[in-house]
Design a protein around this nucleic acid. Structure first.
Lengths: 341, 341
DNA sequence: ATTTTATAGTTAAGCGGTTAACTATATACT
DNA sequence: AGTATATAGTTAACCGCTTAACTATAAAAT
């Protein structure tokens, strides 16, 4: 691997000149520039990033951190879409992405992760923080490393989906269609902070429509399709008068759809079903699923931009992305009195 | 940020001693070790990785490369599972993962990617190579950077799913159930090399069972659920005598299942449907989908181990992971003569 | 008593860039 | 003519860590 010294020797200049020419510093004759460039080309010179990093203190690496708070995070469509958004932005800026998956679930903090953060290897950090309590960014902030949280972190800088508005939007949608008997399929409180926010938004929508939110039947799944089917079965059996099922993610909604059809009820004729997330499959289900998009790729992009802004010395304000209601065919007007079996 | 020099001063030793103590070099008194460790702890010293990298030539970073050969690669469950497998192995060895998504689709090679490869920032490369023609590893190999391909690359070192055996296995499964009229839903040749291999395996199974493979009706989808439904509709309309649909991925199989039910036919009573990949949802579909697992996490893990073996000076042999047939309820005995609508 | 060997530590030379500080010349300004 | 300024390039220190080569002492071997 040729070094800057090789280049400078071949070009007949000092390493300082070679270095400066390569970084487009002014005050060099075209001739000198040509000589250096020529040498670079002939030798196939590529700067050594470790040396540059040591010298400048900048690595052009940013870490994307997603804590192992739950299994299968690598296949969570939301998380991966966020990652895709980050990737787009970073690549276009010439930054590299380093993946880190610290184990925050244990009592002790992940040692390897702490080392990495303080190693000077990272120009900045983007963390997917699901809860304020288990923030991956606290140690980073303590060390003054520029960082942006995606979700419910405790940093000054964050971008998140407005779950409260999302819950309210989907609620208002169903209420506007005349639904008053709505069954809810969510997940246990500990599994997601955003879901709690959505429930608050949903309650607001109910209050404004004079519906008793507390009276709505609710079941806790675990995000999986299977649990959605199970919860739907329970809800429809114990509350045959329900005209809608509101699910906190699309996969559980898929399960609910299957289960509902299994029980011989038409969607949306007899029952409306809504999801959350707008996963790619949602639009292709039969019937296509009414859901809420969290605009995950945008979250990633916005977070990355925010981080670059900080690196440039800016002080960007937090961003709350409004939800995007995707009305499709799985929700329709409430039919009342219900045409039960 | 405290440096080694700070540590050595505080401990009253030379930086060499401090450095060696930290790397467990022999020939030091316990007293000296204690002094150094004490200083490290008091100062909260963390080695600067850029400096270490410059000095040792090792960064402990390996790049995971997935070319942008098709859209939505970040949500391809197989790719993400491979990534998860890699992550597990790398984390346990104290290596960091740098994500790279070069654009190989254009005529020119990705410049940023080439720079990265030759920058000395990478100890090794793991690439997901879908085709021998568009290998992300060629430039890396040219520079002598340790690299392992996952899929159909051109490197000495690779790990791949045995698609041929997989195609054969799923074929033999259907044939053993008595199916002879099998409709195939695959994707255009250019979209995936592995699929071509599966078809070869399938043909072998047919030949051995005295079935004319060439006569089997086939439709090309695009991996999506919607395309699966469309192809299924076409096949079942033009060939009402089909008793099975063999799909080249699970998502198309999902579409096929929906479409088939829409058309009033029972699965597996009237028609067997199989997928490929064994995505997480596959087991929870109604009916649960018979499919083939590519064992993606294992591919990732094996590839990572292989790379570490190379880094340790080894010369590991390529690995072909045998397919894992997941027989579930979407496939059953062929019923003949067919009970058509 | 002298040479080996093992133990315990230090000095200083890299690794490959960047950049502040400096030198040197040509041009422009009083 | 003398000073300021713009232009063009060099020297050498520095970033923080590793490690080969060296010094120095004590214990073991000859």
């Amino acid at each position: 691997m040729p070094t800057l010294e090789d280049v400078s020797k071949r070009a007949g200049v000092s390493t300082a000149t070679a270095s400066k020419v390569l970084s487009n510093t002014p005050y060099f004759t075209d001739e000198t520039r040509q000589k250096v460039m020529q040498a670079v080309k002939e030798l196939g010179y590529i700067p050594n990033l470790a040396a540059r990093a040591l010298s400048t203190g900048k690595t052009h690496i940013i870490a994307v951190v997603f804590p192992y708070v739950y299994e299968a995070i690598f296949t969570d469509p939301n998380v991966m879409h966020i990652l895709a958004g980050i990737e787009t932005e970073c690549t276009s800026r010439g930054y590299n992405i380093l993946l880190s998956t610290p184990n925050l679930s244990a009592n002790e903090v992940d040692h390897h992760y702490l080392q990495l953060i303080q190693s000077g290897y990272l120009d900045g950090i983007l963390a997917i923080d699901a809860y304020p309590e288990a923030s991956a960014l606290e140690p980073a902030q303590a060390k003054g490393i520029p960082s942006v949280a995606i979700g419910y972190g405790t940093t000054d800088h964050y971008v998140r989906h407005n779950d409260r508005a999302g819950g309210r939007a989907i609620g208002e949608h169903l209420l506007a269609l005349g639904h008053t008997q709505i069954g809810i399929i969510d997940v246990p409180e500990v599994m997601n902070y955003g879901v709690q926010e959505r429930l608050i938004g949903l309650r607001t929508a109910c209050v404004e429509a004079n519906i008793d939110f507390e009276a709505l039947p609710i079941r806790h799944g675990d995000w999986s399709t299977a649990s959605g089917a199970k919860c739907a079965a329970e809800l429809l059996t114990t509350h045959p008068d329900l005209t809608a099922l509101l699910c906190m993610n699309d996969r559980m909604a898929m399960g609910a759809i299957q289960q509902t059809r299994e029980m011989g009820r038409d969607i949306p004729g007899d029952l409306s079903i809504t999801g959350y997330d707008d996963i790619p499959t949602a639009a292709f289900l039969v019937p296509p699923l009414t859901t809420v998009s969290q605009r995950a790729p945008e979250q990633g992009q916005v977070a990355a931009r925010m981080l670059f802004d900080i690196l440039d010395g800016g002080k960007p304000d937090p961003v709350e992305l409004p939800p995007q209601l995707m009305v499709r065919q799985s929700s329709g007007p409430a039919t009342w009195p219900l045409n039960t079996m």
